[in-house]
Design a protein around this nucleic acid. Structure first.
Length: 885
RNA sequence: GGGCGGUUAGCUCAGUUGGUUAGAGCGCUUCCCUUACAAGGAAGAGGUCACAAGUUCGAGUCUUGUACCGCCCACCA
């Protein structure tokens, strides 16, 4: 394919006109589909962490999409059948709240319109807004197979949820029971342990005297929640506590209610804490609940679902929990029962959503006993069937799965997968079935009503890697693409989601759901603060993409951090990476503008290459090998940074500048060869960069000579050791160092950049090298070709000259009128001091027998070379100083 | 209470298995609108790698401890 003319490449890369066009082209060409790799290709599969349908794109999405797209694009380029299954999550509570808010704005409510209408409205809402988030994923360049897009509440996935529920029920792992759960009074639903955060807060510790039924004695007790006194069913002391031993077995009276409760002994009580006596409220405290189980105590619930007090609270019934606390305490003060209060810092359970106080309550809910699957999940990681990256999260994994507790899976919501359990109105039997039953399986009655509750959203997300591929049907996709390859997600949902997927995958498919878990960190603001609307520090990915382009955002997210580490996102970095995209763009413009008839692609012929040619190709293949190694270790960020450095600091800064010698010269063969090398190296870099910054690389690739239709389906570069050329690299290193030295001298003597200077180089052993590369000095150090001499030895070095000494090479720069002997002496002396210091260090190291004996040969010889070079530099400098002085 | 992470240049961060004179971006200084790119180029300044001890020929990197910051888990009222 002929390259596009330079006229089509504006001076500045225009991402706005590029991104959408390319994305549509890729998608319409079918390149996001795994089938393009052919039937024999090894699959590489990622299930997207489904964003909430309610969601608006934030940096967390941008990060995971960038990472997963990087992985998928890389896999695609290496010939794998790359499949990225997209979709979204119905997000029970979040979505329900959105629609409730909408109804509220219409002056009505969920309860008023009824369940059926509410669900209709929610689906309507989903149709309207549900595609917003996926559109935003496209904007990021996500190369998902959109034909396979799924929604956790669609028909197939609902069938999967039914199947999973029924299977676990049949295995006795799912059961309905009355236990202590976390109740969210605002949302009016149970939530799981994971959805509760415990936060340290300033509270009060209330001391009071518990009255006893017989006699005037009292038992002092401390509590942080006086209102729960109304639900007390015992007072406990430690069995070996001398102070209270006599009280055990007696009867206490609940303040204000005068309900009789026993004084018991239990080792759970900490004698050191508070008064050493503990009031027991089994209905509203998990520990007390356990103690009540042990002692067969009554359980009294004093709270309604909205956290007002119920009839068990006697005169306090109907009051809000906090009002009841104040009133009860006031009443007790009047009654002379209180002792004192003191400020007290303690952990308070709060809802992850909204932060309201969670009430532990006794409630009838559905639970899943996942201890078996948890063990299977532990084994899968221990025996390496699942690899967690970075490895340190294995410890967290172990700890959580080892201490797992029953999972409360029912939610008192309407938006979600309804629990497939039907209660018989006649015999009370519970029918759990895959298909809606018409009659009771026990008595045949047709008077059935379905459980009103829905399942925890994570129950359906837990099936995601296989439900999206068709499970429980044995579909071709399930057979070919399961288990999936990579699960990439944030470490914050390791338990919520990853653990559930592993447990459910192992349980239902008898296989791991994925081979690798790659955990990314959280994106914070520039100063490490969590982004929030309240703090006003949100960096909106959409705005960033509008201003700097998608590639700039992606590259920043991908190279800004190491696996599992949080990252602080700074706009200045995004701008810098926008500049990088522009830099590559202009490197390509340079190439394209210098193309003539021939447009060779692929590796250049090995013969006839110049030193810089061999150098840049050698460097390229070092890079390819390094990038491969880094990809294998999932160190994508480091790989990206290395490509960046190579392209900017070696290809653009040096090779392109050097290439101008040939391109602006007369030698047609040299021109052609140089164009070939320029093209080849850029092409290989674009391939490696494509998974990071897909848009600008594809756009450039279309402009330069290339074989094949598109970069997105081009082959990933392969390292070729035969291109490695240590000699060329060493030669170029010397030349570059010398040129930098000359530039430095020019700057120090304030020689105008436009002024061509004379240079006389005493090259010593490097004569052949330097003599062959005279043009480099002419062009890169702006030396006058007429006044450049290169000799092995100089008999009569000029007096009035600045000197640059690099190894055994000495360059004399007769800067007429500018060189002050004293200043030059000072300058050389400073350099000499530096070199002498380095020599001392190097000599000491080499004099150390331990070093020469133990260090690898390569390290030692490198050190010897370094020392020799330094010594040669020192000699030159000394010689010159003597000549001047 | 247990566990994990961080501490590297003024700011934000890299540094893969220990091995050249510890890097990048932004910011700063001087110069340059040189025919790919001023979103650029050239030359610079700037770091006792938190602290202490240890292992080693050699430590930013490994071990132990300390300090500070952050996160996760956990049933002391």
């Amino acid at each position: 394919m002929a390259a596009n003319p330079i006229e089509e490449m504006p001076k500045t890369y225009d991402f706005e006109s590029t991104e959408q066009r390319l994305y549509r082209w890729w998608e319409e060409s079918g390149w996001f589909k795994p089938e393009i790799a052919g039937p024999d290709a090894e699959p590489y599969v990622i299930s997207i962490p489904p964003p909430n349908v309610t969601g608006a794109l934030h940096q967390g999405h941008a990060l995971f999409v960038s990472l997963e797209d990087l992985m998928i694009r890389h896999a695609r380029m290496t010939g794998r059948a790359a499949l990225w299954v997209p979709g979204s999550d119905h997000a029970g509570i979040a979505t329900q709240l959105q629609v409730e808010r909408l109804l509220e704005s219409e002056g009505t409510s969920r309860e008023a319109v009824g369940r059926e209408e509410f669900l209709r409205r929610t689906w309507e809402w989903k149709q309207k807004y549900g595609s917003r988030i996926t559109e935003q994923l496209r904007r990021l360049g996500a190369s998902c197979d959109w034909d396979r897009e799924r929604f956790t509440l669609d028909e197939g996935l609902s069938r999967a949820v039914r199947e999973a529920f029924v299977r676990w029920y049949e295995q006795g792992m799912i059961y309905r029971g009355t236990y202590m759960i976390n109740w969210s009074p605002g949302l009016q639903t149970a939530v799981s342990d994971l959805e509760v955060d415990r936060e340290e807060e300033e509270g009060t510790l209330y001391y009071f005297n518990y009255p006893l039924k017989d006699g005037d004695e009292t038992l002092p007790v401390a509590t942080t929640r006086p209102e729960t006194i109304l639900g007390d069913t015992a007072v406990a002391v430690h069995p070996e506590d001398e102070r209270y031993r006599a009280f055990v077995g007696r009867t206490a009276l609940v303040p204000m209610l005068n309900r009789e409760i026993p004084v018991i002994a239990d080792e759970y009580v900490d004698r050191e804490f508070g008064t050493g006596a503990l009031k027991i409220t089994p209905g509203h405290d998990p520990n007390d609940y356990e103690i009540a189980q042990r002692h067969d105590l009554a359980i009294v619930s004093i709270l309604n679902k909205d956290a007002t007090l119920n009839e068990n609270a006697g005169p306090y019934a109907g009051l809000d929990r906090y009002a009841a606390r104040d009133k009860l305490w006031a009443d007790m003060e009047v009654a002379g029962m209180t002792l004192r209060t003191e400020p007290y810092r303690h952990a308070v359970p709060r809802s992850q959503r909204g932060g309201e106080l969670i009430e532990p309550m006794i409630s009838t809910q559905w639970f899943a006993d996942v201890s078996g699957p948890a063990q299977a999940g532990l084994d899968a990681v221990r025996d390496g069937r699942i690899q967690i990256v970075p490895e340190r999260f294995v410890k967290v994994w172990e700890h959580w799965l080892t201490n797992i507790r029953p999972w409360c899976i029912s939610r008192q919501l309407w938006w979600g997968h309804r629990i497939p359990a039907w209660y018989c109105d006649d015999c009370e039997h519970v029918t759990v079935a895959r298909d809606d039953p018409t009659e009771c399986e026990a008595c045949g009655s047709t008077h059935l009503h379905q459980d009103p509750d829905v399942l925890d959203t994570w129950f359906s997300s837990g099936l995601w890697p296989f439900s999206t591929l068709g499970w429980p049907e044995e579909t071709p996709d399930l057979a070919r693409y399961y288990p999936t390859t990579m699960m990439e997600t944030g470490y914050d949902i390791l338990f919520f989601w990853v653990a559930r997927m592993v447990m459910m995958g192992l349980s239902f498919t008898d296989d791991v759901p994925f081979r690798i878990v790659y955990l990314n960190g959280l994106v914070r603001d520039e100063y490490g603060k969590k982004m929030s609307k309240m703090a006003g520090n949100v960096i909106d990915p959409i705005e960033v993409m509008d201003e700097y382009g998608t590639d700039a955002l992606r590259f920043t997210l991908l190279t800004g951090t190491a696996p599992g580490n949080d990252m602080n996102l700074a706009i200045s970095r995004i701008a810098g990476n926008r500049n990088f995209a522009n830099k590559i763009w202009n490197a390509a413009r340079f190439l394209v503008s210098n193309l003539e008839g021939d447009s060779p692609t692929g590796p250049p012929p090995g013969e006839g290459l110049s030193l810089p040619d061999r150098w840049i190709v050698s460097r390229l293949h070092h890079l390819i090998a390094d990038v491969d190694r880094l990809f294998e270790g999932y160190l994508y960020g480091e790989a990206g940074r290395q490509i960046y450095d190579f392209l900017w600091s070696e290809y653009a800064d040096w090779y392109i500048e050097i290439s101008k010698i040939a391109l602006y010269g007369e030698d047609e063969a040299a021109k052609s060869r140089t164009r070939h090398v320029l093209t080849y190296v850029l092409d290989q870099c674009l391939r490696m960069l494509h998974p990071f910054i897909p848009f600008v690389t594809e756009e450039i690739w279309q402009h330069i000579p290339h074989e094949g239709e598109a970069l997105i389906v081009a082959r990933w570069p392969e390292p070729d050791p035969s291109w490695l050329d240590e000699q060329a690299e060493a030669g170029m290193a010397t030349l570059m160092e010398l040129i930098r030295g000359i530039r430095n001298a020019r700057a120090e003597y304030d020689v105008p950049p436009s002024r061509r200077i004379a240079a006389h180089i005493e090259a010593g052993e490097a004569f052949d090298l330097l003599d062959a590369q005279r043009e480099l000095f002419t062009r890169l150090a702006n030396v006058d070709a007429e006044q450049l001499t290169v000799d092995a030895a100089l008999d009569d070095p000029p007096e009035q000259a600045a000197v640059v000494a690099i190894g055994g090479i000495t360059a004399y720069l007769p800067l007429a009128g500018l060189v002050d002997i004293e200043a030059e002496q000072a300058r050389l002396q400073k350099e000499l001091d530096e070199v002498v210091g380095l020599i001392a260090r190097s000599e000491a190291l080499l004099a150390n027998d331990g070093f020469t004996a133990n260090a690898p040969e390569e390290v030692v010889s490198r050190e010897r070379d370094k020392l020799a070079r330094l010594q040669a530099t020192r000699d030159s400098l000394q010689e010159r100083l003597e000549a001047l002085g």
